[in-house]
């Protein structure tokens, strides 16, 4: 249960240019969704620039703050790996090239969306892309502290958002706040 030591990974932090290229590549190839799962795959599993713990902490903070999750995550990871320049390339890498691409798509290939086959291919891609989110979700669940309260917080969140479709903000405020207070008291004793 000790927190993982970050020093083990700090031997080979990427350069800012490398970070930009990785964010750009992920941004331009994420067909069908699953972006945060692609981040997990790349930064934790493939390049091993972050531990699972570091990534999951960043994911938790990114989700709790307002703003598009994946953009939050890109800035968090960028800052973690490269300070201010890293955060800047995280933001522009995940937003810029796909933004140019979507306008290009809208101008040149707008008629693509009219073909049924495009729709079918997209559905297949989206089905496979769920694997990225689900495998990351299972890893996140696996790393939840093995105790009753964290487990209850996870299940209540799942049921409230997934099954009951309650507003995200209220679930976050209520479940998140209780869970944080529990952890705060625990670490103090």
């Amino acid at each position: 249960m000790t927190r993982q030591d970050t020093a083990t990974l700090e031997t080979e932090k990427p350069t800012v240019l490398r970070l930009l290229l990785v964010f750009t590549r992920i941004g331009l190839t994420s067909f069908g969704g699953g972006l945060s799962g692609l981040f997990f795959r790349a930064f934790v599993q493939d390049y091993k620039w972050m531990t699972e713990e570091e990534f999951l902490n960043g994911l938790a903070i990114s989700q709790a703050l307002p703003g598009v999750n994946i953009k939050n995550m890109a800035i968090w990871i960028g800052y973690h790996l490269g300070g201010f320049p890293g955060a800047v390339v995280g933001f522009f890498g995940i937003i810029g090239p796909p933004a140019v691409f979507i306008v290009f798509l809208g101008v040149v290939f707008a008629q693509l969306t009219g073909y049924p086959i495009t729709e079918v291919a997209l559905e297949g891609a989206a089905a496979a892309a769920i694997g990225l989110s689900l495998s990351m979700g299972l890893t996140a669940a696996w790393h939840v502290r093995r105790a009753v309260l964290p487990f209850v917080a996870m299940v209540v969140t799942f049921v409230a958002i997934g099954l009951l479709q309650l507003p995200m903000l209220w679930v976050l405020l209520v479940v998140g706040a209780i869970s944080i207070v529990v952890e705060y008291r625990r670490t103090g004793s």
Binding site: I61, F158, V175, E183
Partner: peptide, 21 residues
């Protein structure tokens, strides 16, 4: 405490998003 408290919530959120998808 913020990290530890939000992590079960984050896991629940990811799994709920998967469920909805």
């Amino acid at each position: 405490a913020l990290e530890a408290g939000l992590r079960p919530v984050a896991a629940g959120l990811v799994l709920a998003a998967v469920w909805v998808l």
